[in-house]
Design a protein around this nucleic acid. Structure first.
Lengths: 159, 159
DNA sequence: AAAAAACCAACTAAAATACTCAGGAATTCA
DNA sequence: TGAATTCCTGAGTATTTTAGTTGGTTTTTT
């Protein structure tokens, strides 16, 4: 799992979208000017998010994007995964100098960590962020209380 | 907070170092061949980690690197921060189109999230990973039990 | 018909990543 | 002393990723 500025742009854009969609579809143009992200970069990001069923677009005047699901059913991990494709398969594929197991082991440790990170980010929904911002969808939600989340670090296994 | 393959290289290298330093200083050459990372890239990474007081180098034959602190006092966040300098200050600095607070708000939400991620990764020590791997420092540590960690998502504030 | 918007693809500029090269400085050991 | 080993440094380079640009097309509304 990677976490770059690209993911930040996507999350930021989705927050903007979530905060404004109660008035109907939100145009990329408005997100672009609100958040200072270039229009066609947003187009690329939203193209991927649309293919991952996170948003839906409608064309024509009055068109724009809306979330494809409820804000509480879209996690930060969903957004980052959609936009930041892995390409990250630099793992030792059984061939290279894996003699003593060291290489495999380190890679496993990292991928365990990466899984933990993923489940951490999967535990945070767009809605969580918005509720806590005091700027709810339709103006009716009060800021909510602190929540706790348990994260489990499991035992690793060697192979 | 960013999390790229560069950070992964650094964490992987540190795990390798931690697993082998009980025999004395570990050379970058050995990490390089174990982990398949180029020597001089490792040199760059370790230069930064040395400046962050995570490792200590000794020169000459028999030299190499050792951890500057106990494995339980080096967190994954320490490593990633050391190696992946921020440069990430693309935040609206009060100037741009911050009229209605939208831009600031999204940025705050992101930086809140980033802080949470940081404290998540600060809760995982090198030693945690190693104990669970079943390959302890000196051959004496047994694999330990599952641990739980509480992560707190605090209320966000607007400004 | 005209305008507004999503959609799409190719190209480009800038930055970050990962590596190479070439050496210097400290240390050990023959 | 001198040679080997290793850290340490900096400059340069190739590749990849990021971010943006350009120039369209399609769909929909007015």
């Amino acid at each position: 799992m990677r976490l770059t500025t690209k993911g930040r742009y996507a999350v930021t854009a989705m927050i903007d979208l979530a905060m404004n969609q109660f008035m109907g579809p939100v145009t990329l143009k408005s997100i672009s000017s609100n958040q200072g992200i270039s229009l066609s970069y947003l187009e690329q990001l939203f193209s991927k998010m649309r293919k991952s069923n996170l948003v839906e677009g409608t064309r024509g005047p009055g068109g724009g994007y809306v979330l494809a699901r409820d804000v509480n059913e879209i996690t930060i991990a969903d957004i980052i995964i959609a936009v930041d494709e892995p390409l990250d398969i630099t793992e030792c594929d059984g061939l290279q100098n894996c003699k003593d197991g060291k290489r495999c082991l380190s890679h496993d440790l990292w991928s365990e960590l990466s899984d933990q990170l993923y489940s951490f980010l999967s535990g945070i929904q767009l809605g969580d962020l918005m509720e806590r911002s005091g700027l709810p969808l339709d103006g009716s939600h009060p800021a909510t209380r602190i929540q706790r989340q348990e994260v489990n670090i499991p035992t690793l296994e060697r192979h």
